[in-house]
Nucleic acid binder design. Structure first.
Length: 199
DNA sequence: CAGCAGATTGACT
DNA sequence: GTCAATCTGCTGC
C-alpha cells in the first residue's frame, strides 16, 4: 500500500474529499496491532466561511489549531464529552479545511476492532458513525495533529473504489443555518458501512 | 465564572 | 421515541 502524498491533500476540498479521501484506507498501528478500513462516508467542513466548522471565522482555540496545519495531518476532537471524531486536514498551511471520516468498512484486524467495540460479530455498527470509527481503530484525542503520511500510529493509504457516490446534507449541524443544508456529505451507494442514508 | 450546547451513541420506555 | 454520559469552549452576567 502507498501513502497518500502531500499533493493529494491540496486543491479543491470537495474534489479531494471525493477522489482522494473517500475510498482510501485508514489504518492504525497501536501496540503492534494493525487495524484498517476503507473510508465509505465523509463530510467536508470549510474553515472560515462554513458555520458548521469549528474554525468558522478563522477561530483559533487550542484544540482547533491542527486544522491550520498543512494538509495530511489528523484533526481529532471530542464531541459530547465522550466520542472522539477523526478528520483529515486539507489545504496549504493556514487553510483550515477538513474532511470528517464518518464510516469505514473493515479491511484488516476486524477481530481487534470487534474487541475494542465490545461486539461479537461483524455488523455495520462496528465502524459506521464517527464515534464508532475512532473507537474501532483506537483513535483518541491525544492523536490530534498526527502525520498521516508515515511516522505516526495513524496512516492513510491510497485506494480506489468504483462504487457510485451519493451526496447528502451533513449530520448533526442543524444550528448552522444555510450551511446546514449544503450537500457536503458523500457516501457509497452500495456499501452497508454508512451511518445514515438520504437527507 | 456559571450555564449551556454540541460534527454521538447505546440503553431503555 | 426519550434520555444520560461528560469534556471543551462560547455566551453572558
Amino acid at each position: 500500500m502507498t501513502y497518500l502524498d502531500a499533493a493529494q491533500f491540496l486543491g479543491d476540498p470537495f474534489e479531494v474529499a471525493r477522489k482522494n479521501i473517500l475510498g482510501a484506507i485508514l489504518a492504525t498501528d497501536i501496540g503492534g496491532k494493525r487495524t484498517s478500513g476503507m473510508i465509505t462516508e465523509v463530510e467536508v467542513y470549510i474553515g472560515g466561511s462554513d458555520k458548521a466548522s469549528h474554525t468558522y471565522g478563522y477561530r483559533k482555540t487550542p484544540r482547533v489549531m491542527s486544522q491550520y496545519e498543512r494538509g495530511g495531518r489528523a484533526y481529532v476532537f471530542l464531541v459530547y464529552g465522550i466520542h472522539a471524531q477523526f478528520n483529515v486536514v486539507l489545504g496549504e498551511a493556514g487553510v483550515p479545511d477538513v474532511v470528517l471520516v464518518r464510516s469505514i468498512s473493515p479491511v484488516e484486524g476486524a477481530d481487534i476492532m470487534l474487541k475494542r467495540r465490545g461486539l461479537a460479530r461483524l455488523c455495520p455498527r462496528l465502524c459506521s458513525g464517527p464515534g464508532n470509527v475512532t473507537k474501532a481503530l483506537g483513535i483518541t484525542t491525544d492523536m490530534n495533529g498526527y502525520d498521516l503520511m508515515g511516522g505516526s500510529e495513524i496512516k492513510l493509504f491510497s485506494n480506489r473504489c468504483d462504487d457510485e457516490i451519493i451526496e447528502a446534507r451533513r449530520i448533526g449541524i442543524d444550528y448552522a443555518e444555510e450551511y446546514a443544508y449544503k450537500p457536503w456529505r458523500y457516501y457509497y451507494k452500495n456499501n452497508e458501512y454508512v451511518s445514515k442514508r438520504g437527507n
